[in-house]
Design a protein around this nucleic acid. Structure first.
Length: 275
DNA sequence: TTCCAGGTGCATA
DNA sequence: TATGCACATGGA
């Protein structure tokens, strides 16, 4: 796959390592829409529309350099897939989710989004996050930016509850008073284990949410978020184990630096009912 | 009606 | 350290 910065966005050549549906519908991001088969993705205060062309895709955006990083275009996913295919369990999931890429998302938005995601379903997560955008974010023409921490500080616990956050309203209210965007950015230099502990110390952030923020925000490959789907997968393909911490440890020791990638293909595969 | 969704916090032993 | 339970909400 090749990419090229154009006046109106980014031109992608090749379809094997970039598939909008697989990238966006694999549960790593909640802020996107599909209209007439065309995906538009929202991140922080930016958006990009992904148009299919004969030879690849055009990522139409005013912020091309942001989305080069966002879509992780500098990473060679054919190499990632080659590595993963050395694990026999990965062959079918990698083939099925061929165009997946792990997004490098805005840290603050990722943190808030995955706190909302806990014990929740994707449709409702999207609804709640949309309401948060619309109520507290700045209007950017035809969409709302994800609000900043300062903007969200105006919200009370009751406000979040009214947006549908349920019992997570308290987590949101509290976490906003524990960290700001600069804290998160400054943690980028920490090693994964220490960074993980920092995240887990935050309200509403346990092992699973921390691993999602590490993978989808901080771009750490050496984490393996274990949710109900991965739990099911493990019981089917490995062994019956109830302890999610042990499952996580086993999977991280198996996949090492490629844990995050493996996890995402497996999650997409499981959720699609391919099992 | 009951179960489940990309789980976490807290009490208890 | 580890186990058990409560927690909002809406769709299946």
């Amino acid at each position: 796959m090749k990419y090229e910065i154009k006046e109106n966005g980014i031109k992608i050549t090749g379809k094997e390592d970039f598939n909008p549906e697989h990238i966006l519908e694999c549960g790593q991001i909640f802020s996107y829409i599909k209209e007439d088969g065309v995906y538009t993705v929202f991140s922080a205060d930016k958006k990009a529309k992904i148009l299919e062309t004969e030879t690849g895709f055009l990522i139409e955006t005013e912020s091309p350099s942001y989305f080069v990083n966002f879509f992780d275009l500098k990473t060679d996913y054919s190499e990632v897939k080659k590595r993963l295919n050395k694990f026999s369990i990965m062959e079918r999931p990698v083939k099925f989710g061929y165009g997946i890429r792990i997004l490098k998302q805005d840290l603050f938005e990722t943190l808030i989004s995955f706190i909302v995601s806990a014990n929740n379903n994707i449709k409702r997560i999207q609804m709640i996050l949309n309401r948060i955008r619309a109520k507290y974010g700045v209007k950017m023409g035809d969409f709302y930016a994800f609000p900043t921490r300062n903007q969200l500080l105006k919200a009370t616990e009751q406000d979040f509850a009214e947006l549908g956050a349920g019992y997570r309203a308290k987590y949101l209210f509290n976490v906003l008073r524990q960290v700001n965007e600069d804290d998160l950015t400054s943690w980028q230099v920490l090693e994964t284990a220490e960074l993980r502990n920092k995240l887990i110390s935050l309200c509403g952030v346990g092992p699973k949410v921390a691993d999602c923020v590490l993978l989808f925000g901080f771009g750490r490959g050496d984490v393996f978020p274990v949710d109900t789907w991965i739990h099911q997968m493990y019981n089917k393909y490995y062994s019956n184990l109830e302890n999610r911490e042990k499952i996580r440890q086993n999977l991280v020791s198996e996949f090492g630096l490629y844990s995050g990638f493996a996890q995402q293909y497996l999650f997409f595969f499981m959720r699609a009912g391919e099992i």
